[in-house]
Amino acid sequence: MTSTTVTAPATVRGKKSALPSAWSLGLSRGALELKQYFRLRDQVIFTFAFPVVFLALFASIFSDDVKDAGITASQLYAAGMLAAGIMSTSFQSLGISIAIERDEKVLRRLRGTPMPPAAYFLGKIWMVLVTGTAETAILLGVGSGLFGLDLPTDALSWLTFAWIFALGLTSCALLGIAISSLPKSGKSASSVVVLPFLILQFISGVYIPVGTVPDWLLNISALFPLKWMCQGFRGVFLPDSASVLEQTGSWEFGKIALVLGAWCIGGLVLCLLTFRWKNRRDA
């Protein structure tokens, strides 16, 4: 009878293999989130087309209304469409999707795995960053190629655009994670998240020029990131002479940085205080 020797795996006795870091797991999680996102083709098409279609409508309908101001309608409305697109792919997308995942007990199952909680949120942030960047690039490309949108030509303007984009995306993503705990179920998530987003679009200068919005509504919108993203992007795409159209008569880039930075911190605090892995009825 021949004896068979079983060889143990080549491991160093007394040492454990290093576990992946939260950062590397977050990258892997982000890749998975993107695969799941782009598999929903109808959602991707409508999400990416939304700001482009509205820019096309406004650029066509109001083309004659801004001629005397020395700017094009596409310049005036591109800022609002960019800001709304960023908030759509971050605040709205995360607020709804996380609430649905919680309702379907996906979060509960993930919490029971060895994956660090930070990796889950990093995955969501990576997904938002990629989709937000892609949507912004598409909007700028279509606006420039078809509707006469004049893109900045100096490095300082693009640098300003970059930090407004980064702070705006981060603050809105954190707010989306925080508001995801508000709906009682995944079915009600759309109503809970979309309504405040829709109201903010009307009072923050997305669809209606800020010069025609009452001051008391602008003061309310100033409490949230969307108004400041719109104002900052207008400062990038419009000439300095157009700053007289703003509520204070200036672009206020310093204040924009402070408010968006404060919302990044405040959004993180809200996430830490409110986020739940289970539904209230399962607690």
Rank of each mutant, 00 (worst) to 15 (best):
M1Q: 10
T5N: 10
A8F: 09
A8C: 07
K15S: 13
S17W: 11
P20W: 02
S21D: 01
A22P: 06
S24V: 13
G26V: 01
A31R: 11
E33R: 12
E33V: 15
L34M: 12
Q36A: 14
F38K: 02
L40R: 14
V44K: 00
V44H: 01
F48H: 09
V52N: 07
V53S: 04
F54S: 04
L55K: 07
L55S: 07
A56P: 10
L57A: 13
S60W: 13
S60Q: 13
S60L: 12
I61N: 04
F62R: 08
S63G: 06
S63R: 14
S63W: 10
D64N: 14
D64T: 12
D64V: 04
K67R: 14
G70S: 05
I71R: 05
G80C: 06
L82P: 03
A84F: 06
T89S: 12
F91L: 14
Q92M: 13
S97L: 09
A99Q: 05
D103F: 04
D103M: 02
L107P: 07
M115K: 08
P116D: 10
P117K: 07
Y120E: 10
Y120P: 04
F121L: 15
I125T: 10
V130Q: 04
T131P: 01
G141C: 09
V142C: 03
G148H: 06
L151C: 00
L151F: 01
T153E: 11
T153K: 15
L156W: 11
S157F: 03
F161P: 09
A166P: 01
L167Q: 06
L167A: 12
G168P: 06
L174E: 00
S180H: 02
S180P: 06
S181Y: 02
L182C: 05
P183Y: 02
P183F: 02
S185N: 11
A189L: 00
S191F: 11
V192W: 02
V192G: 02
V194Y: 06
I199M: 12
S204D: 09
G205N: 07
G211A: 12
D215C: 02
W216M: 08
L223V: 13
P225C: 04
K227E: 11
W228K: 02
C230L: 09
F233K: 05
G235M: 09
G235A: 06
G235W: 05
G235E: 03
S241Y: 08
V244S: 13
L245N: 14
Q247K: 15
W251T: 00
L260K: 00
L260G: 01
L260E: 00
W263V: 03
I265K: 08
G267C: 03
C271P: 08
L272C: 11
L272F: 13
T274Y: 11
W277I: 07
W277M: 09
D282F: 08
